[in-house]
Computed example of a mutant assay.
Amino acid sequence: MPTDSKNLNDANLEQNFEDFLEHSLSGYISTNPRGEMIRINSKLLEWLGYSTEELIGKRITSLLAVGSRMFYETHLSPLLKLHGSFEEVAAELLLKDGSKLQVLLNGYVRNDENNNPLFIRLNVYKATERKVYEENLRLAINDAEQTLQKEREFATLREQFIAVLGHDLRNPLGAIKSGASLLTRSALSDRDKLIVDMIKNSSLRMEELIANVMDFARVRLGGGLSLDLKEVFLKPVILHVTEELRAIFPERAVTVDFEVNDAITCDPDRISQLLSNLVANALTHGSADEPVKVAAKIVSNSFELTVFNGGKPIPGDALETLFEPFKRETSAPSQQGLGLGLYIASQIARAHNGTLSAYSTVDETRFTFQMPLF
């Protein structure tokens, strides 16, 4: 055959949609308006295991499994009449050997110039791999949901345990504090006085830890932090906190610069707890050679309470997670504590519709609580 003639035949073949449909990797069926099959391509015949003669003239529904047949007759056939097409409908085909094939169907009606139906065409795509994928995805989602539910149940149980533990520790701690107070009224040697002071200071530290644990459990179990709002002058509250911490850290200097003259609406006990956590954090992690400074003032109709300390700056990656529970400064991993103090302080700030922020450089580290004035 001459080259020009061969090229012409190849070009004609490339434009021959009949050849394309016949040798497509998908299945194609044409039916008359009554749903009787008038043409089936070779790929679909290969899937089904039938010959053309065995299917021509039979209704398309004869190839569908019971459920798919009912759906075709009650939904797809009316849909073709109303809208002229449907897309991506899952169905099961009955093969000649009795097995079933999962497929997706697209269908449309071809009308004449008077809008009367001439024939119906269906495109058939194998959906076996898609079904396997969907089933595996469903199983994976189910496993993930079960794992997540177990994790939630475990987390709730853990937090309930923390709450109960914190509550039950208060009684023996109260007895220790009472015993230490009674001993201070007795005649003691200098050595015994030091021991009693150590017990009292340790009791205060334990009380703070238990309060943080209890508050953590309340927040995580959904109760949130409760506030007892009232109008108070905060200067005595702040001075009391700093005096208490000076007693625990007698070798350290804590200064107070208080510039607020008016009463402020807040929960004084919670503000005391917030400040105690911030100052204790500064005394624990700040430089022992520099004082911890506490400053309070009104800025742009907001109450602002700031705690400053010197020493090494907090690393940038630590700043990002500083207010998360059970996080501690990596610069001082040997320091004792649960890592709840700053988390509870941030929750107290949030409960007051305020914010707690941290800023740290080589010159100073400061924590600032800002609360809008009511």
Rank of each mutant, 00 (worst) to 15 (best):
P33Y: 00
P33L: 00
R34Y: 00
R34I: 02
G35F: 00
M37E: 06
I38R: 05
R39A: 15
N41L: 11
N41D: 09
N41A: 06
N41S: 10
S42N: 15
S42F: 06
S42P: 09
S42C: 04
K43D: 03
L45N: 07
E46N: 15
W47M: 03
W47Q: 10
L48H: 01
L48E: 02
G49A: 06
G49R: 12
G49Y: 06
S51W: 14
S51D: 14
T52W: 09
T52R: 15
E53K: 15
E53R: 15
E54S: 04
I56P: 06
I56A: 08
G57T: 04
R59A: 12
R59Y: 00
I60F: 15
I60L: 10
I60P: 08
T61P: 01
S62G: 02
S62D: 05
S62L: 00
S62V: 06
L63I: 06
L64I: 07
L64N: 02
L64M: 13
V66K: 07
V66W: 01
G67H: 01
S68E: 05
R69Q: 12
R69K: 14
F71C: 02
F71D: 11
F71H: 11
F71Y: 14
Y72M: 15
E73I: 15
T74W: 03
T74G: 05
L76Y: 03
L76A: 00
S77R: 07
S77L: 08
P78H: 11
P78L: 13
L79V: 01
L82A: 10
L82S: 06
L82D: 10
L82R: 15
L82T: 11
L82W: 10
G84F: 11
G84N: 13
F86M: 03
F86C: 04
E87Y: 13
E87T: 10
V89F: 05
A90Q: 09
A90M: 02
E92R: 07
L93Y: 00
L93Q: 02
L93G: 07
L94M: 09
L94V: 10
L95V: 06
K96R: 14
K96F: 09
D97N: 14
S99N: 09
S99E: 05
K100E: 05
L101K: 15
Q102M: 10
Q102Y: 12
L104H: 08
L105P: 07
N106Y: 10
G107L: 09
G107C: 07
V109F: 02
V109S: 03
N111I: 00
N111E: 08
E113K: 13
E113S: 13
N114L: 14
N114D: 14
N116W: 06
P117E: 05
F119L: 09
F119E: 13
F119G: 02
I120D: 03
I120F: 04
L122R: 04
L122Q: 11
L122K: 05
N123Y: 01
